[in-house]
């Protein structure tokens, strides 16, 4: 047994001796073997990472962005591989590290925004607070998402402007997604005169809401007297609507309610204030005309030809 062991040991030591023979300067066959193993491992790792990235982000990221991401990650792996190989080639890295450190600091300063955008983009892809087509508010900007890229997000404002939002800004801003939920609520405050019947007004408003297909049946709309204000009794109307249709409903329904209330002799009053003088005015009261009568606004039909607009120069009130 010991002879066999000796034989194996002598064979092993002879292979090791063989591999330890310098073939190129101080570089031995063993070094070359390690270099080959690390290089092959690096190539395999890059391929695995590429496949993983394509599978994970293929449907979430645009193809040019995905290609950029794959290239960057591949380069990073290759750099790690090269740095791992260099010691086996007896390359003195100390000088390279010093120079590399200085370059790295310079590059880090120069690219901090780019890296910040890139990292934010990756986090946004995972978190997915927005998607293409969503109506969103980002800070003071309200727009529709057009494109989500690795460095930036493209949105179109409601007046048709193209806006590029860097992902780092998007990531740190308050994002309000206006359509992520299936339904949303909006409300009106409608003031009626004190002499009007609030119960009747509520009934009319409810019947108007009922006729609107996009005013959801459930959650039910809420209509109630909210405040006895200075000049009006305020009725609050809260309506749920499908998120994609609420704006159209909101803009159309208010006028319909106004018209219907006026048809039923329920007026929306102007702000009014009565002023009482505590002292006697030293003036000839005969010369003072009485106050103009408070005019009721006549009912205006939707199809009426009544022109509403700014007065022209020289126009005066008819009282």
């Amino acid at each position: 047994m010991s002879a066999i062991d000796d034989g194996v040991e002598s064979n092993g030591s002879s292979i090791f001796d063989l591999l330890s023979i310098p073939v190129l300067g101080d570089i031995t066959l063993l070094d070359i073997l390690w270099v080959a193993i690390i290089a092959i491992a690096g190539v395999i790792i890059v391929r695995i990472v590429r496949i993983w990235l394509k599978r994970s982000f293929g449907e979430k990221v645009a193809k040019p962005d995905l290609d950029l991401m794959i290239t960057l990650v591949s380069y990073f792996v290759y750099i790690v591989v090269i740095l791992s190989i260099l010691p086996y080639l007896h390359f003195d890295l100390s000088g390279l590290f010093v120079a590399g450190g200085i370059i790295a600091v310079a590059v880090a300063f120069a690219t901090q925004n780019i890296v910040s955008n890139l990292v934010s983009g990756i986090f946004l892809l995972f978190e997915r607070p927005i998607k293409i087509g969503d109506n969103v508010s980002i800070g003071s900007l309200t727009a529709t998402v057009q494109k989500i890229q690795i460095m930036s997000t493209i949105v179109r404002t409601y007046d048709g402007m193209y806006v590029r939002v860097p992902n780092s800004k998007l990531f740190t801003s308050d994002i309000t997604n206006l359509v992520i939920h299936p339904a949303r609520r909006f409300d009106y405050t409608i003031g009626i005169r004190y002499q009007d019947d609030a119960k009747k007004a509520i009934s009319i408003i409810k019947s108007m809401i009922e006729k609107e297909p996009y005013a959801l049946k459930s959650p039910a709309p809420s209509v109630y007297v909210d405040k006895l204000d200075d000049s009006s009794v305020n009725i609050v109307v809260k309506i749920w609507s499908p998120s994609l249709y609420w704006w159209g409903l909101r803009t159309e329904l208010l006028w319909k309610i106004k018209v219907e209330l006026e048809k039923n002799d329920i007026q929306i009053p102007f702000p009014q204030q009565e002023v009482w003088f505590n002292n006697i005015l030293k003036t000839d009261m005969k010369a003072v005309k009485g106050p103009p009568p408070i005019k009721e606004i006549p009912f205006q039909d939707e199809g009426s030809d009544t022109k509403v607009g700014k007065p022209k120069p020289g126009d005066t009130h008819d009282w």
Partner: peptide, 13 residues
């Protein structure tokens, strides 16, 4: 007429 089945965040129109 439309309605919502389920809560306002996860329901369906």
């Amino acid at each position: 007429k439309y309605s919502l089945y389920g809560p306002t965040d996860t329901g369906v129109i």
